[in-house]
């Protein structure tokens, strides 16, 4: 069996059959979130791309990169969003150094 094949995405329809009601509820929830609102579709998709990279979900990256492209996000904007995500992820590691310091130095 191949993990993470691009054709896998279609199997979501089969997964839906396992529990249609829960799946539909998720879809409705998702559609409401992604509809234009105070944030534009473009911004929402940029956030989605950034988060998809952090959670390292290939399917999410595939779908949301395409959706961002359709919403008019440029390649430069996309790259900057992923850089922001990587900065937060890198920074989160770095700033957990605080805990290391606390562990070693906090003598109270």
């Amino acid at each position: 069996m191949k993990y993470y094949d691009s054709k896998d995405l279609k199997l979501i329809d089969d997964f839906k059959e396992y529990s249609p009601e829960l799946f539909d509820a998720y879809m409705e929830w998702g559609n409401k979130i992604f509809a234009g609102g105070a944030l534009s579709k473009k911004t929402k998709e940029l956030i989605a791309v950034a988060v998809s990279h952090v959670v390292q979900c290939p399917y999410c990256i595939d779908l949301h990169t395409k959706a961002a492209d359709n919403a008019g996000v440029t390649r430069e904007e996309l790259a900057e969003a992923v850089h922001v995500a990587s900065a937060i992820k890198g920074g989160a590691t770095l700033f957990h150094g605080i805990l290391a310091v606390k562990t070693l130095e906090d003598e109270d």
Partner: peptide, 16 residues
């Protein structure tokens, strides 16, 4: 080898 997705793929379009 391959087959058509029976439904519009989630997130691929807004006309759902």
């Amino acid at each position: 080898y391959n087959y058509m997705s029976p439904e519009r793929i989630a997130c691929a379009g807004s006309r759902k």
